[in-house]
Design a binder for these strands. Sequence first.
RNA 1: GUGGGUAUAGCUCAGUUUGGUUAGAGCGCCAGGUUGUGGCCCUGGAGGCCGUGGGUUCAAGUCCCACUACUCACCCCA
Length: 421
Amino acid sequence: MAKKIQTPRGTQDILPEESYQWLYLENEIRKIFNRFDFFEIRTPVFEETELFARGVGETTDIVQKEMYTFEDRGGKSMTLRPEMTASVVRAYIQHALWNQGAVQKLSYISPMFRQERPQAGRLRQFYQFGVEILGTPGPVADVEAIALAMEIFNHLGLRNLTLRMNSVGCPKCRPNYRAVLRESLKNVKGRLCPDCQVRYDTNPLRILDCKKEICRKLTEDVPGIEDYLCEECRGHFNAVKNGLKVLEIPYTSDKRLVRGLDYYTRTAFEIVSTELGSQDAVCGGGRYDRLVFELGGPDVSGVGFAAGMERLLVIMRKNGLPLGEPPRPEVYFVSLGENAKTAVLKLAQQLRRSGFRCELDLAGRSVKAQMREANRIGALFAVIVGEDELSKNEAQVKNLENGTQTGVPFGKLPEFIRRDQ
RNA sequence: GUGGGUAUAGCUCAGUUUGGUUAGAGCGCCAGGUUGUGGCCCUGGAGGCCGUGGGUUCAAGUCCCACUACUCACCCCA
């Protein structure tokens, strides 16, 4: 028991009993991606470390303490991707995708890696689905990204989600607000939690996001950033909110919403569920108008979101929402005798080519055991072949739902099964 | 990185308080009850160095210590 090798901490196997649910989710998510005319992008699971250091931000927790970084045999520092945006932007630049159309709409469903202490809804290898819209600063793109996220959750049957909205401004107006924030917290600085006292100097916006009781109280009446946005940012934010109204997507404005990644500008949003415990965000995203340029590309804007598959699954299971059905074979071949086993091999191949999911006995078991197996895996029909059947070229086909059994000529099996199921 | 909880069969868990001969149940799995027929039922079987190491004791699944793993929470995030 003790020495068996098991999955590394914070990782999990997804076994057949569960994997069909993942396939269902991925299929449904891709359906909605398609309706919004997004195209899937796949990038390497590891990148040069520098990409994330520059892209995500040197000061973020992700870069400072959560990355899986290693040296390859050539001595280069590589990192398992902790998030997708930096990789997508890298690919966008590397392949000059702006030449393939003014706006690129890219989607993904991929594993991410962060070396954190695991807990409910937080794993070291976890799956995110998301999109990036590159090449336009227009607020409609923000609205489309948010609408797409909401549409996926809606399509999957999720209700009771809350969309939180804020703007984090731009390099022009954020410094002003930062100063306002510092000013209004000046007198209570000493009472903030130790972390926030540091944040006061390094990144005061994060104080708003602190979950500590004291800090929340002290920041309760602090002005929000909305009143201090520059004209452009205010206009953008209003346009986004208008778009949401047009689409009848409810949201709450939340001055405390300050996303943790450095690259965000203007729109920041988050979709939370009350059913996730303390890791309540199922989706987070926003606009990043400087990232492409900072990573060496043209000065174009981007907006996107990422959502957690495992967290989504948690919510769906709690709400008893449909997650697909485990596949059942149409046919289980029951054979007895060497000749029959050979014949059944061939019959199975023919039925499979007709599109049926077929199974046959690989373990050389008794007829009874084969029947039991057919029942256990939920086969619709047992097709029984022995010496008698071989001589008549006719199989005994038993409908396992209602127990009726009929003789069916080998050649007529596909049409019989198609008709009778 | 810091704290709390847990660790007995593939799974869910009894047994630990009051140490005492071969460690249990349900589910699942396998097989028999039907010389070639599933489900329900009956019968049987396989499967556990009771997380690992050490200690106390005549005797440890049970008491003590350490370690490890899992889990929940903090930080932060999807």
